[in-house]
Design a protein around this nucleic acid. Structure first.
Length: 255
DNA sequence: AAAGAAGACAACCGCCCTTTG
DNA sequence: ACAAAGGGCGGTTGTCTTCTT
């Protein structure tokens, strides 16, 4: 049995929103708040699908949105978050105040991809384009769910993280692998492999904080251990919402 | 100046997960 | 426990704008 459509397509407008529709939607949400998108169009007098209303509000009409060009700092932050999270645009957007997942996704596809390619970096793997892929040996802690997860993971994704190496979602399955070392890596970092990605943690005494490890902060600006990250300058962001600079990776869970 | 190509981005589609009855 | 509804997400498409020839 298939799902019923979210709305009756025959009697809904499609395409670009008019000023009047925007005004109606804004007025309704100001009066009643967000929520119950399915019934909102009718209540607000809009001939739109509820999902369309939600998208319009979240991506363009919300008062807290920051419109306009992305800054260089935002560019770099997006690149670093993407290297960590992959195409989890909503997670990336959550770390960029005033930006939406859709906006970041579009910006990635139109600007940043090209920017990385011009630098000779594969935008999917964030590694030099001709660099061979390191072998990853996996010891899975998962048991019963392994087969099911692998079934999911095999699905090829267009983001380049395809096949079994790329978990379909960020998870906290621990892996032991030859850590990907930046050239001349100065520290004895503890690498926590999560979902095929390396997290540097502060769960031991030998590590830099997550921000420093990504180059978001350097050690002079951060209270983490006395690392000398070769990072660029600080963006000033409270990266991952962690003012202490300590990664609580639970905050990265998908909702 | 006109036409076609390329770029940019708003919006839609369909799937998945969570919640609810 | 199960099915349906609701909401959210990532991928893709459509359309408008800008650039190039």
């Amino acid at each position: 049995m298939g799902r019923s459509p979210c709305c009756e397509k025959a009697h809904t407008n499609k395409g670009a929103w008019t000023k009047e529709e925007d005004d109606r939607l804004i007025a309704y949400i100001r009066a009643h708040g967000e929520g119950c998108w399915r019934s909102l169009p009718k209540a607000a007098g809009l001939l739109r699908c509820g999902k369309s209303c939600r998208l319009r509000w979240i991506n363009y009409l919300r008062p807290d949105l920051k419109r306009g060009n992305f800054t260089e700092e935002e560019d770099e932050l997006i690149i670093k978050l993407h290297s960590l999270l992959g195409n989890k645009w909503s997670l990336i957007a959550a770390r960029l105040p005033g930006r939406t997942d859709n906006e970041i996704k579009n910006y990635w596809n139109t600007h940043i991809r090209r920017k990385l390619l011009n630098r000779g970096i594969d935008p999917m793997t964030h590694r030099p384009i001709n660099e061979p892929q390191p072998e990853v040996k996996t010891i899975s802690f998962a048991t019963a769910s392994v087969e099911k997860e692998e079934e999911k993971a095999v699905v090829t994704s267009s983001n380049g993280f395809s096949g079994k190496e790329r978990c379909p979602d960020l998870n906290l399955e621990l892996r032991i692998s030859p850590p990907y070392q930046y050239q001349n890596q100065p520290h004895d970092h503890q690498i926590l492999k999560t979902g095929g990605r390396n997290f540097t943690t502060t769960t031991t005494t030998t590590t830099l904080c997550f921000s420093c490890s990504l180059g978001i902060l350097n050690s002079e600006e951060c209270s983490c251990s006395n690392g000398t990250s070769s990072s660029s300058s600080s963006t000033g962001y409270d990266f991952l919402g962690l003012e202490s600079g300590v990664l609580d990776y639970r905050s990265l869970e998908m909702k």
